[in-house]
């Protein structure tokens, strides 16, 4: 019983990690209708920034959240403006996807060039200490991640529902041409949205860096799971991504223990396919006609 509870705790915490990484991905997908294959590499960039900030300036990783989030916001803005926007009117929309694949490869190799293949561990500064709850243990960093995951989803939800910009973003997602006719600057909306998506990854990077060391390929470890989470939750659904992440985290943790560590991916993807067969739009997907 003790082990089971600990496994559930571990699973939920792991879900929090997947959630915070997936939020930006689902946002970009939902609004811009773009599968961003460079998502993991944005995480990687953020983790290196966090490493630099903690080791060169001696700051606590969490203190670096505002600058890293801002930096990633700008990076996202620039990617949309200079790489994706010129391709917006390409004959085939998939060209943009290939551009993100290219960007991903370029960023990995850039990191190899600058930092080499070695691991860079951000100092933990107490983030990796565990809190004991009776016989159970929770990592401080994971708990923070979990709470931040909920906060980000709630904040984005409010922003989308209440603010003028949020409404414009949703309008653009619903019908690009109609929004444009109503006076929405679609290109600017896309830039801001990609920027917000990247900024979410920036926050994830700050929280993940003290727990996992940065390396050029660190993004690839997380991004596949993030895609699963996004599709499972219903592409574009923020709270769907959060619930999807928790499910994947729990399945990962429980199947790793009760079945086998090398088979947990089989279980995760088996479940993934089953859910898609039963609900092709994902758990909270809007279904056909959302655009």
């Amino acid at each position: 019983m003790d082990t089971f509870v600990q496994l559930v705790i571990n699973g939920l915490m792991l879900g929090g990690l997947f959630a915070i990484i997936s939020v930006g991905l689902t946002l970009i997908f939902g609004i811009i209708r773009l599968v961003n294959f460079a998502h993991g590499e944005l995480l990687m960039v953020g983790m290196y920034l966090t490493w630099l900030g903690t080791t060169q300036l001696g700051l606590h990783p969490y203190v670096l959240a505002p600058p890293v989030v801002l930096a990633l916001f700008v990076v996202g803005l620039l990617i949309q403006r200079f790489i994706l926007q010129p391709l917006l009117d390409a004959r085939d929309a998939h060209v943009q996807i290939f551009a993100t694949v290219g960007l991903s490869t370029a960023l990995i190799n850039l990191a190899l060039l600058v930092f080499g293949a070695d691991l860079y561990a951000t100092p933990s500064s107490g983030v990796r200490d565990s809190i004991a709850l009776g016989p159970y243990r929770i990592l401080v960093g994971q708990l923070v991640m979990f709470v931040c995951g909920i906060a980000v989803v709630a904040a984005l939800h409010l922003f989308m529902e209440r603010s003028y910009l949020g409404r414009a973003i949703r309008a653009t997602a619903q019908h690009r041409a109609a929004a444009q006719l109503m006076g929405v600057d679609v290109k600017r909306i896309y830039m801001v949205t990609f920027g917000i998506g990247a900024a979410c990854v920036g926050l994830a990077a700050v929280l993940v860096a003290p727990i996992y060391p940065a390396s050029p390929t660190v993004g690839t470890y997380f991004v596949l799971t993030a895609f699963v989470v996004v599709v499972l939750g219903g592409m574009g659904s923020l709270h769907g991504a959060f619930i999807g992440a928790l499910i994947i985290g729990l399945v990962d943790s429980l199947s790793g223990f009760y079945i086998a560590p090398d088979l947990k991916e089989v279980v995760i993807f088996g479940l993934f396919i089953t859910i898609l067969l039963l609900r092709p739009t994902g758990l909270f997907g809007l279904g056909r006609g959302s655009e």
């Binding site: 600990q6 496994l7 571990n10 996992y212 429980l254 790793g256 223990f257 560590p261 947990k264």
Partner: peptide
């Protein structure tokens, strides 16, 4: 990315 179940 997570070895906690293996360790348990």
């Amino acid at each position: 990315v997570d070895m906690s179940s293996l360790i348990l």
